[in-house]
């Protein structure tokens, strides 16, 4: 079961942060023997050198602008999760990236207004089920879009990701032994 309320320090990124930034092709796709953790060291290398290696800390929160995760279908959430990002909040998120995030079990919420709501370095408290966001430095609150209970993405996220969701479904249908 997912931890529902998460608090952390904010890193802010801009609009149109592509998955090429999160997982550079010439580093990661060209080197398929890299581990997930090794690949994550190159996350945001082009747009924010040193961030993944030295700056980001486990439990931090990533805040982005519009169209977060645009571009390639490579799973940028895998690297963000390996960096132990607790939650991603963005003005809008690309479809492919949003599905990857759900399937990876990394809570990623569309949060219109988040850019003006928080400064880098401030702390947020995020309820990933209800979508309530609280700025612990200013006391202000913001409503992010929550997944509706019972919808497939809600079920998959709450299961902890696609792998766990699939195992349950495969057992129910007798495709793998219980």
């Amino acid at each position: 079961m997912m931890e529902t309320v998460r608090t952390g320090r904010v890193w802010k990124f801009g609009d149109h942060i592509s998955t090429d930034f999160m997982m550079p092709g010439h580093r990661v796709l060209a080197n398929p023997d890299l581990t997930v953790e090794e690949a994550a060291k190159f996350c945001m290398e082009a747009n924010r050198p040193g961030w993944a290696e030295d700056e980001v800390q486990p439990g931090d929160i990533l805040v982005a602008g519009i169209n977060f995760g645009c571009g390639s279908s490579r799973n940028g959430s895998q690297s963000l999760k390996a960096l132990n990002i607790a939650v991603v909040l963005a003005e809008s998120v690309s479809r492919i990236h949003l599905r990857n995030a759900v399937n990876s079990g990394l809570p990623t919420l569309v949060a219109p207004g988040i850019n003006d709501f928080v400064e880098e370095g401030q702390r947020l408290e995020v309820n990933i089920v209800t979508g309530e966001v609280k700025n612990l430095d200013t006391g202000a609150t913001l409503q992010a879009e929550a997944w509706e209970e019972g919808t497939p993405p809600y079920e998959i996220l709450m299961a902890g990701g696609l792998d766990a969701f699939m195992k349950t479904k495969l057992k129910e249908r007798g495709r793998i032994s219980a």
Partner: peptide
Amino acid sequence: NANLDAVH
């Protein structure tokens, strides 16, 4: 595109 969920 289906990425991870192409396994589904």
